[in-house]
Computed example of a mutant assay.
Amino acid sequence: MSLNLFPVFVVGLAGSVHCIGMCGGIVGALSAGAPRRTIPIVPATGSAALAQADSGAARVLAYNAGRIGSYMVAGALAAGLANGAANLAKIAAWQGFAYLLANVMLVALGLYLMDAWRGLAHVEQAGKVIWRRVQPLMQALLPMDTLPKAFALGGLWGWVPCGMVYSVLLMALLSGSAAGGAAVMLAFGLGTLPMLLALGLAGTRLRAALQQRRVRLACGLLVLAFGLLGMARYAGGLQHGWLDALCVGAP
């Protein structure tokens, strides 16, 4: 089954409000650079201040490149290891089930972002088995004061247990190929990028604004709408056409 990448990108964009709590702190630390001195120093000005800003932005970009890269690896592995499912995808009944399942996961994700249903939190708990193996590797990357360290940290952080990532990873698995799975996770990662770049460059004020309940509610409703549209289309209640661009795939 082929999946449309546009709704996956929008899911990443709307769902990135969830990333604020999980990734916002570390991105803010990256933008600040190396640990600050305890004794205040005269603030940098002119070219020195510009160099510091450029360095912080570069570290934020390196971190996000590593994070999105790890998403793509996970997507490729999930889809590549699902060769049996890919063969089954040639069966019409399996195609319909896979399409419905992908949209059910969007509904679950929308409710999760709205804090209306926390079922995906149980999935995050299960993923802690992976995290326990990854977490010790981070100690060698602190302090995060170079581009290679920021990139490697992002690559490791991409394996942090996250219900949102897992729900999109299921869509990647249903793509039927390693390349397709990587493309799905790339679209999702690029959707989360604007939010995390803004957090890294704007800091805690933006983080506080985006954590407001009304913001999470609006983003959750958007993701929920994608899932409900797909389910309605599956049930035959909506005609194809312009809806193709708003649904994760074709049943």
Rank of each mutant, 00 (worst) to 15 (best):
A65L: 15
A74T: 08
A86H: 03
A140C: 03
Q125M: 13
D145C: 05
P148S: 04
N87C: 05
A58G: 03
V129G: 04
V104Q: 03
A76G: 11
G69K: 09
M114E: 05
H122T: 00
V73S: 07
F97L: 14
G96V: 07
A140P: 02
A79L: 01
M114C: 14
Q135T: 12
W117H: 15
L61P: 00
M144P: 07
Q139C: 00
G119E: 04
G110A: 11
H122S: 07
A85L: 13
V60F: 04
E124C: 03
L141C: 04
A98C: 08
G110H: 07
Q95M: 07
S55I: 02
A89L: 12
L113I: 15
M105R: 00
F97R: 11
V104N: 04
Y99Q: 03
M114H: 12
V107T: 06
W117M: 12
P136W: 09
Q95I: 02
L106R: 01
A126W: 09
L106N: 07
M138F: 06
A93E: 12
G66H: 06
K149E: 00
G56F: 12
V73R: 05
T146D: 08
G84C: 05
L88I: 01
A102D: 13
A93K: 04
Y99C: 11
G110E: 10
L111R: 01
A116S: 05
G69P: 02
Q135L: 14
L81N: 04
A89D: 03
Y112C: 03
E124H: 03
K149T: 10
V134M: 08
Y71H: 11
G69N: 13
A116L: 09
A76E: 07
A98K: 00
